[in-house]
């Protein structure tokens, strides 16, 4: 399946887009999606060290399953404050 991962802040600026389409084999987990981002979007590599994924607006563990239609967001390089 192909899922869109929302990206924000410095990662979005570097990639010049606010979403990254990623192909993963089903059944997929958060870990699979992060691995696929690294492989399919090398321009985002700098943002993946320690990166997490939010699934449907909640931080998810690496083993969390990802379903078609889930809202996915790359949580990295946070800069609140």
């Amino acid at each position: 399946m192909t899922v869109d991962v929302l990206i924000f802040g410095p990662a979005a600026a570097a990639a010049n887009t606010d979403r990254a389409p990623v192909s993963v084999r089903e059944p997929a987990t958060v870990r699979d999606v992060l691995t696929a981002i690294a492989a399919q979007h090398p321009g985002l590599a700098f943002a993946l060290d320690g990166a997490r994924l939010a699934v449907n607006q909640s931080l998810a563990s690496p083993d969390t399953p990802v379903q078609p239609g889930d809202e996915l967001a790359l949580i990295s390089l946070l800069g609140g404050g």
Binding site: A13, G80, G81
Partner: peptide, 14 residues
């Protein structure tokens, strides 16, 4: 609070 916010709350600055 500030340490956890910078780590976990999805806010970015550019």
């Amino acid at each position: 609070f500030i340490d956890a916010m910078k780590r976990d709350v999805p806010i970015w600055k550019s």
